[in-house]
């Protein structure tokens, strides 16, 4: 990660994706610079999770290009397993490995994918669990942890692969309200440490405070993007304004 901040790390060109008749992504163009934190917001069904999942090819797009770190992920001959090592992902439902302890969750891929020695992998895993504030829970199994703790283990698991880019797919949407803060705090620290992050979220406070740029999606296209002070505080587009009104003032929404 010696490269300069500001260089383009993720580039997406004319991305299209359909599920059957449902055209979810209708031509997405955007790029993310190294060290940048981008929050993707938008109503459900707008394609924001699909966009995120196309970046590490968990969904295979029908058209367009995804280039991460100079490598074209969407090239059919791309070694996708190798490419994914540099792209960490955090899921809404955590998806921790239930048969592994917190430590095991963080060492498994290091040992199987990176061929690290167990002692090395364990050291890296411990450091990352410390980093998310779970140094005292390394031997606990996921079932014994709260949702917030599980999501923090999931972040540590992704960080243990030392990724260049972190993708967050609604990381706090499955959490009880009082547990959201601990996860967002960890993510904020990660952002402050210079990690490149793409975050699909409904947490407007996080987007406003932490994001360098906010992307508003609706109907499979990017409607508006810019710094949070513009998109969230002073949106240009009606659709953005309408969405923000629904999210920020949910007790005064006109039922449609």
């Amino acid at each position: 990660m010696s490269e300069q901040r500001g260089e383009v790390l993720v580039q997406i060109q004319e991305l299209h994706k359909s599920f059957g008749d449902n055209h979810v992504l209708r031509g997405i163009d955007f790029s993310v610079a190294r060290g940048e934190v981008v929050c993707v917001i938008g109503p459900s069904g707008s394609g924001k999770s699909t966009l995120l999942r196309c970046i590490n090819l968990l969904e295979v797009p029908e058209g367009g290009k995804v280039i991460v770190g100079g490598e074209e992920i969407t090239d059919p001959d791309c070694d996708i397993d190798a490419a994914r090592r540099h792209i960490g992902m955090v899921f809404q439902q955590f998806n921790l490995f239930p048969q592994q302890s917190a430590l095991g969750n963080c060492t498994l891929a290091q040992e199987t994918v990176l061929d690290l020695k167990p002692s090395q992998a364990e050291q890296i895993a411990r450091d990352n669990l410390e980093r998310v504030g779970l140094g005292d829970k390394i031997d606990e199994y996921p079932a014994k942890l709260s949702g917030g703790q599980q999501q923090r283990v999931a972040i540590a698991r992704a960080l243990s692969m030392e990724p260049e880019l972190m993708l967050f797919d609604e990381p706090t949407s499955a959490l009880d309200p009082e547990l959201v803060g601990e996860v967002l705090t960890v993510m904020r620290k990660l952002a402050e440490d210079g990690m490149t992050m793409i975050v699909v979220t409904h947490e407007m406070a996080f987007a406003r405070e932490v994001a360098d740029r906010v992307v508003f999606m609706d109907g499979g296209v990017i409607v508006e993007e810019g710094p949070p002070s513009e998109v969230i505080v002073n949106p240009r587009e009606d659709r953005t304004r309408e969405f923000l009104h629904r999210v920020l003032d949910p007790t005064h929404v006109q039922p449609t």
Binding site: F91, L108, A158
Partner: peptide
């Protein structure tokens, strides 16, 4: 579970 494993590069 598979998605998590694959996203880690397995």
């Amino acid at each position: 579970q598979v998605e998590a494993a694959r996203s880690l590069g397995m």
